[in-house]
Write a protein that binds this DNA or RNA. Sequence first.
DNA 1: TACCGGTACCCGGTGATACCGAATACCGGC
DNA 2: GCCGGTATTCGGTATCACCGGGTACCGGTA
Lengths: 108, 108
Amino acid sequence: MEDLTEMLKGTLEGCVLELISREETYGYAITRRLNELGFTDVIDGTVYTILLRLERNRLVQVAKRPSEVGPPRKFYTLNDAGRRELATFWTKWQYVSSRIDKLREDGA
Amino acid sequence: MEDLTEMLKGTLEGCVLELISREETYGYAITRRLNELGFTDVIDGTVYTILLRLERNRLVQVAKRPSEVGPPRKFYTLNDAGRRELATFWTKWQYVSSRIDKLREDGA
DNA sequence: TACCGGTACCCGGTGATACCGAATACCGGC
DNA sequence: GCCGGTATTCGGTATCACCGGGTACCGGTA
């Protein structure tokens, strides 16, 4: 699928939040997971900027732990603010996507 | 619904294309229509920038005609390139929205 | 020992996009 | 003559995903 970057704006961060909410995880693994899920062109640099933003906005808890196969990993967990943010993200997504689908179908 | 601007990035232009494809129309009317359709906070300034972009990218045909209730209107119609753009927009939307919905449901 | 690929993270800068605020202008009615 | 509704334009702003490069840890191999 050709360039989707503009369409991912505002939604990619929510996807990352969702993945973190499932289980404690780290940037490299999140990128891999997103690629598997069809977001094939999302690269690690993008995910790291999102993670740093989440950290700056105090939506996540961070724990650095060593890895046995490479440099240390930064593991992320949602805090209460993060869970609220995730909930409002899905509310917004539901709202926007339903309106767009509606506009597409009966359109006018 | 609170601030949706980030989530509309990359999709609002497609919505405008869709509305134009339905019938020849102009900026002010498009804004009104979008507001009715649930995009309540989208303002005329935003729509006009999109329209000028469509014009610059040669996706629309433009015809300026007088109005009986105000200043002249710029009516827009899709050309072939515009129709192709609209088609690829919906393809992308289908792709992205289905992946996000999937990620939400069975998530991992 | 030196190198290389895979793992893992960070940072400065870019381009695209929706939004904001102000300005211009046409029109009818009070 | 002013005000609200109609109609468009423009310069500037904020945010976001992306790009390119850099740093660093680790195991295997030549």
